[in-house]
Design a protein around this nucleic acid. Structure first.
Lengths: 290, 290
DNA sequence: TCCACATTGCAACGATTGTTTTACGAACTA
DNA sequence: TAGTTCGTAAAACAATCGTTGCAATGTGGA
């Protein structure tokens, strides 16, 4: 199960030199590692058939300040196991990671988790719904702006069916004026949810539009108004939320939509290419400035 | 992860009818199910931002005798998961993946690769350079707009030192007018490189500004003008490039910068929170429309 | 045999837990 | 507008927690 476990090795290594009661306690911990974090010390001692104080003494024998250190260790082991194949990634640098490494590791896992079957099914259902729409209105305010913008940008390269709701000076929602039952609103919102986004999603619903949501929780307010909901993680070791998984979702949706008619998508992209080429938009070297 | 979870379904089902505080508690439990079993109720309440009593009330609201029932449920879920290797093995054996799964898998790897030591070193060097700057000008055109926008948005919440170069009607570069040797340009550009981005980066260089680049290749044109370069993958099984790794880079940079003075960052965020709260920007439920 | 010492069980300690009570304030109703 | 209900925050509560001191027990060396 856990081969790179320092505490476990320590217990095994010093087991022989323990007094009988400590051995009994230690054996029970080795055989029921999860219980250590899940029940109180007294109950663990009861199950192990030793006195509560023996657990404390075991902790000190192992060089810890108190039993709390042992519990913390096993709790952490559970937390890490949640990320299942964390072991698969790399064993070397698990102990002391910098913030950057932590962030990237966690991001990688969060995106990998989007690949689970339940999540894939939601993505495909959402893509299906979007594909059937006459027009797609894209809404993402504040932090979610970047996701909405990305979706709209890519879809614009692919065709003409999207409209980005981000007017200045409070005109965000104006784009919905001509929207109707055949259209779909793609709403992106994460906690804290922008009030305006929720209002517009609700309005879209009332207009009979389809609603597809990218959000962060089973209990996001968007669940109530959306036909299709895609969940993405936003947790981050920093002060703010991450949007990379949400962006990944947007990219997957674009990918699925483009994949429905590969020939058409390819042609649209080539057309866009020619257009941008004609405008001298791109360059592959630092241009000489005049 | 846990689809056959009665308690979870119960929480989701009754979520709408909960008072706000209960919702906040419930949301935290849904998002951190393991923590329920691993930390004390008081600490869980603290992390959820609610009173301890709210957790008890949530338990009663859900029809339990007390909080202990909730903890017991989550503890049992952890115990059962120990035997849950089957799902993982099955996942590993399915070589026939759909496009969505392919994309997410590849994305996950690309971001994990950003955590390699060489890459981490570049990220930290770039953060160091940005931290020393008087002002940070952020430039990302076309597809890279979302990355630039993200960096600017987060940094604005943290303080006042960034300016986003994205003026309309061809005024993109105007912001650099007053920029000087003490400032830094953060330029984001991937293949195909927007000509305008390269020109502005070159201009910044000539003005004596520092240049930090997020780009996609060792031979990107930005290599020539930037003091610090961060590379991120952009390949995708679709027709277009992925920007999720680039966004991840931006998030890491923000994280590293915020981490340099955690107290100040926290204070700035709280200030921003109060401001947005006063403006009634956010909501956690669909607002009633009048 | 006796002593020194390690090990153990037990009881009590303060700290912290989960819960209940209380009082205040907001939101709704008539 | 006054009255009422509802939701929340804070304090008080008993219970349980992990820990510690001490006496009882067992063990090995002189």
């Amino acid at each position: 199960m856990s081969q790179g476990d320092a505490l476990r090795d320590r217990i095994i290594g010093t087991f022989e030199s323990m007094p009988p009661q400590l051995q009994q306690a230690a054996r029970h911990i080795l055989e029921h590692p999860d219980e250590v974090a899940l029940v109180s010390m007294r109950e663990l001692a009861r199950n192990a058939g030793v006195q509560p104080s023996t657990m404390t003494r075991l902790a000190k024998f192992l060089g810890f300040a108190g039993y709390e250190d042992i519990r913390a260790h096993h709790a952490q082991a559970i937390r890490l196991r949640v990320d299942g194949f964390a072991a698969q990634q790399e064993r070397a640098s698990t102990s002391d990671e910098g913030l950057a490494q932590q962030m990237l590791h966690s991001l990688s896992l969060q995106i990998a988790r989007l690949g689970e079957p339940a999540s894939i099914a939601r993505l495909e259902a959402a893509a299906e719904r979007l594909a059937r729409a006459r027009r797609i209105y894209v809404l993402g305010l504040r932090s979610c702006h970047l996701v909405a913008w990305h979706f709209h940008y890519v879809m614009t390269l692919l065709g003409e069916r999207t409209e980005h709701l981000d007017g200045p000076a409070g005109t965000v929602g104006d784009g919905l004026m001509r929207a109707g039952a055949k259209d779909v609103l793609l709403a992106i919102s994460i906690n804290p949810y922008a009030r305006h986004s929720l209002e517009l999603a609700q309005l879209a619903r009332e207009k009979g539009m389809g609603v597809v949501a990218i959000t962060d929780s089973e209990v996001s307010p968007l669940n109530g108004v959306a036909d299709e909901v895609i969940l993405c993680a936003t947790e981050s070791p920093t002060f703010f939320h991450t949007l990379a998984p949400a962006l990944a979702v947007s990219e997957v949706l674009c990918g699925l939509l483009a994949n429905r008619d590969r020939a058409a998508a390819l042609e649209a992209l080539q057309k866009a290419d020619r257009h941008l080429l004609a405008l001298n938009t791109y360059s592959s070297a630092i241009p000489r400035r005049q």
